[in-house]
Every structure is written in C-alpha cells, then in structure tokens.
C-alpha cells in the first residue's frame, strides 16, 4: 500500500487512540517513544496492547518503538510481537539497530513491515546500507528535528537546511523502489506553511508525509493525490503506449512531446497512486 499520510498517535493517550480510525490518515504511527514520558512507558505499552486487542485493527497501523540504545527496545517488541499490526517504525535508524530488529523479527517469525526513521547524521549517510539489511523495509522516513540537532543546524520553516537530507533519503528509497516519507511539519496552526513545506518535499520526490496533528492530514492527502488532469494525461500516455506497441512502434508522441520510458514509468506510478492502475499495464514496459 502507498501511504500519502502517516499520522502520529501518542501511545498513552486513550482519546487519540480511540478516534485514530476516523482522522483520515492513510496510516497511523502509534508512538511509544517521544510522545510518552519515561515514567509512563509501561502504562503506554499496556494501553496500546489493550486497544489493539479490543478493536479490529485498521490497515496501516505502525508502532514507533523506543530506540535500540534505550532500555525499552526489547520490552516494546515483546509487548507488540503478537499484535495484529502492519509494522514498526524504528527510530534512530542505523545499520546496527536495523540488524538487531531484523534478528528479533526473524527469531519470532514476525511478518511485519518496517519503516526506519533516519534522524542522525550517521543514519543519513548510511541510508542505502540500512535499506539493504531487510526485505521488510517499505519506506524510509526522514526525522528532521533530531537530525538538525545532530548536525548542529538551525531548524527553520523554510527547511533549506534539510534539502540535502531530503534528497539523500529520496535517492536511497527510490534506488530500492520503496517509499520516502517526509518529516512532520511541526507548527500545527500554520496550514499555509504546511502546504508550502509539503509541496517542496513532494517536488523533490517524497512520496508521503508524516503528521503530528490530525489537522494536517487532509492537506497532506491532497498534496500527494494526483489531480484529475494528471490522471487523464497518464491514461492517455498508457493508451498511446498500447497503440504504439500494437503498431510495432518503439516511440510515439503525445501533444507534440516524445513519450519515452521515464514518462511511461511516471504515468504508471501515478496511476498506482490514484488507484487507476490495471494489471494489464504490467506488460507495457517489457
């Protein structure tokens, strides 16, 4: 599944947990890490477990566990290992934490997806290696707040200081055909700022964005959804490819523009996002 939006839900907040299904996000990340006070880690684990065993879990439920260098990493995993969730968000991702997580998941034969949260300089520079640790990884997630702290960079709304990090995460993700999730926009009241920030991230190549406020979900979903014009164009590209293939033509033009493999690929990706993709399109690029 392609996630346009992933919304953080604090793990020790019953009100947010019980309404998490109706907030419009493609996926949720139940947080056992930063959103939970050190004195409440035990209570949050129990609450999340009780919630997920009481209600039929929706699709796209991830849990952000505590990092490997905390005392809670294995406690978190032990509590969630038999829950019906989609996957795990691994904070402070690096090759070693990802390897330890992979070992645990293998040992317990767990069919869970993993999203490494890259938020350290080392994590960023080893993103390609992290992805290669596990086939369970479905996307890379850039955590800009901790990363800029680690880099000694000033965090600004313009986000110029994370352009390199965004591009590096995007390149590593695209190299392995997985998703690239952007850092949350932290000013919950500034919807115009969110709009600009999301557009910047999408224009660089991010495929989805995380959110810490339900108020941001609609804007993010909108930004990462193709417009009707884009879908129409993609369908015309696909029809053009089918017609060209039937005539035995290698290339063709549409609206005066030469259509080649990257444009076809982009059109197919867009149709996957919009839900207009058909199985028969698999043959088009062969």
């Amino acid at each position: 599944m392609n996630y346009r939006s992933l919304l953080f839900i604090p793990g020790n907040n019953p009100g947010m947990l019980q309404s998490s299904d109706i907030l419009g996000a493609d996926g949720i990340i139940i947080d056992l890490e930063d959103a939970v006070a050190l004195t409440e880690k035990d209570a949050a684990r129990i609450l999340v477990r009780e919630y997920l065993t009481t209600f039929e879990p929706r699709k796209g439920v991830f849990i952000r566990i505590n990092p490997l260098d905390s005392p809670y990493f294995y406690d978190d995993l032990d509590v969630i290992k038999d829950l019906k969730i989609t996957g795990i968000v691994l904070p402070k991702a690096g090759v070693e934490p990802m390897t330890k997580l992979e070992e645990y998941l293998d040992e317990h034969d767990l069919d869970l997806e993993v999203i490494p949260l890259v938020e350290t300089a080392m994590g960023l520079e080893t993103a390609l290696e992290i992805v290669q640790v596990s086939d369970r990884i479905i996307g890379l997630f850039l955590g800009a707040e901790d990363l800029t702290l680690d880099l000694g960079a000033k965090r600004t709304k313009e986000s110029k200081e994370i352009e390199y990090a965004r591009s590096r995460i995007i390149a590593a993700a695209k190299a392995f055909g997985i998703q690239a999730f952007d850092t949350p926009f932290t000013d919950t009241d500034d919807i115009e700022g969110l709009r600009i920030d999301t557009k910047n991230a999408k224009d660089l190549g991010m495929t989805g964005k995380t959110a810490i406020s339900p108020r941001h979900v609609d804007e993010i979903n909108k930004a990462f959804s193709p417009t009707e014009e884009e879908i129409d164009y993609a369908l015309r590209v696909v029809e053009g490819v089918k017609a060209a293939n039937e005539k035995g033509l290698g290339a063709f033009s549409l609206d005066g523009k030469m259509i080649d493999a990257p444009i076809i690929k982009r059109a197919l990706n867009l149709l996957k996002t919009s839900g207009d993709y058909k199985e028969e399109y698999d043959e088009l690029l062969k």
Partner: peptide, 9 residues
C-alpha cells in the same frame, strides 16, 4: 479498554 489498561498498569 482504557479502564482495563489502567488497572493492569
């Protein structure tokens, strides 16, 4: 679910 969780904790 919350009542049970808080009692267990």
């Amino acid at each position: 679910f919350t009542i049970k969780a808080r009692v267990r904790a």
